[in-house]
């Protein structure tokens, strides 16, 4: 089990625990150095997941987006969830592809679904939605059924095909 106390002092973390999940919240400008320390000095060599939560309608939330990094230490099986909060209008974070190559597509998905830019990412394009798509579908202000994009196609009838 990793002793978080020195890290809390060094990076100004807020620590919490819920049903065995250990979580820390870090300021956005320190997230890269924290993750770097965790990887290089504390053995968190696998990045399990990068995801994002849009807190627009969440009760009691103060910030718009929370980006979540789930880390795993392969030798001890220790897990840690690192969260950082960012806001509109230009939600931006440094990329972690330099630390874990596996972050490549995960960050692209977060960019595609939430519009969060990862500076330094070598290939930040849309991944799931078409390139022409202009909205960010998993944001809370985007309706479930879309804005009519799914009906916006030419029709082929039987007599002309």
């Amino acid at each position: 089990m990793l002793d978080l106390q020195p890290l809390i002092e060094k990076f100004g973390l807020t620590q919490s625990e819920f049903r065995g999940n250990r979580r820390v919240v870090v300021a956005a400008d320190r997230v890269y150095s924290l993750l770097e320390t965790l990887k290089n000095s504390h053995g968190f060599n696998m990045l399990i997941d990068v995801t994002c939560v849009d807190y627009l309608e969440y009760e009691g939330a103060t910030d718009r987006f929370g980006v979540v990094y789930c880390l795993l230490n392969m030798s001890t099986g220790d897990r840690l969830i690192v969260k950082t909060l960012i806001n509109d209008p230009t939600p931006t974070l440094p990329t972690v592809t330099t630390l874990w190559m596996g972050a490549d597509w995960m960050e692209r998905e977060v960019y595609d679904m939430f519009g969060i830019t990862f500076t330094g990412h070598h290939d930040l394009r849309r991944i799931l939605m078409p390139d022409e798509f202009s909205a960010f579908p998993l944001r809370k202000d985007y309706p479930l059924k879309g804005r009519g994009e799914r009906h916006n196609f030419p029709v082929i009838t039987r007599s002309e095909s």
Partner: peptide, 15 residues
């Protein structure tokens, strides 16, 4: 899948 991405029936666009 009544969602933003799924075409609601292919018969709208092909016979």
């Amino acid at each position: 899948f009544d969602t933003y991405a799924v075409v609601q029936g292919v018969d709208r666009f092909i016979p």
